[in-house]
Design a binder for these strands. Structure first.
Lengths: 159, 159
DNA sequence: ACGTAATCTCTCGATGATCGAGATTATCGA
DNA sequence: TCGATAATCTCGATCATCGAGAGATTACGT
């Protein structure tokens, strides 16, 4: 691989990390605007993602998603419920479980903030052909796979 | 814009967020392995980035980078210095300042963890032509610009 | 030069997020 | 029914973060 090729690839990795930092900053800004902390936002995002997939998150699964112990999840849900972003309700099928549902107001606030971002991103993609976007799609999936492998376990890289 | 086009673009945005989550998980894993918390890792990354650009970070600038008040920065630097990841030293040019330097051991640990990731990502890019990578590069820069705008201030989107 | 304002970091006390251990409530299988 | 299992919550302790202000150093105006 030529020097230039290597440099170009490394630059892509750096760009991705920079993008990651800025995306975090967007979440941070949402938190400030609504008087939440970082964890609260991560939790709301996790619940919204689950809702998008059609599942309602339980307290336990939320704890897994944001890597918090059950005691902390209780406190977290207390906070979010107190400010009206969340509702607790017992699962009828398994009454040990507590399912979490976002309030309409929180959903609207999230849609406003992150939806606006998604809209701007979508608009910025006007400058790309479908073929180009397909390349980006493939690249993102490949990179996500690599990153996920590193996130789950120390890579079995050294044989 | 056709339905399919809109969906494809939205899917890219979702992919990007998923990637973001996984990238955070990599940092989380690094933190666990080294007995650090999320903020500590963000701080080390900020210092490493600054070092890459050839600047030495001061305590104040680090606070800006990770969005912490001065009192918290002092505590943060105390923690990292205590475990040997960091050195404080007064700036000779402006003796009010405290410049921060990563220890060799911390630098090595970071290079091992994140460098391994970068290497795997670079390797995964074998499957792309230079032209394709150029498209990805342009897309990442465009998206970063949009995201940065949202991170800095509520977008002046609605005219 | 000199005094004053500005800048940078640190100390202190208070608040709140998180955790570990254990209690509580609900479900399931023998 | 009863014990085992699972999900959630309570309690007390710990630690990260903050606001206010102090101490030290530099920059500026006269």
């Amino acid at each position: 691989m030529s020097e230039d090729t290597a440099r170009a690839r490394q630059e892509l990795a750096l760009l991705l990390r920079r993008l990651n930092v800025e995306l975090d900053a967007v979440g941070q800004r949402f938190a400030q605007l609504h008087g939440l902390n970082r964890t609260d936002v991560r939790a709301l995002v996790a619940i919204m993602d689950a809702a998008r997939r059609g599942e309602a998150l339980t307290a336990g699964r939320l704890g897994e998603a944001v890597e918090l112990r059950s005691a902390s999840v209780t406190a977290l849900v207390d906070r979010l419920e107190k400010v009206g972003h969340l509702r607790r309700s017992r699962d009828d099928a398994d009454r040990r479980r507590v399912v979490l549902e976002m309030s309409d107001s929180a959903m609207a606030a999230g849609a406003d903030h992150f939806g606006g971002l998604a809209q701007d991103m979508t608009a910025a993609m006007d400058a790309y052909t479908p073929a180009e976007l397909a390349v980006v799609h493939r690249w993102l999936e490949d990179m996500t796979a690599v990153i996920t492998r590193h996130a789950r376990a120390e890579p079995p890289a050294a044989p």
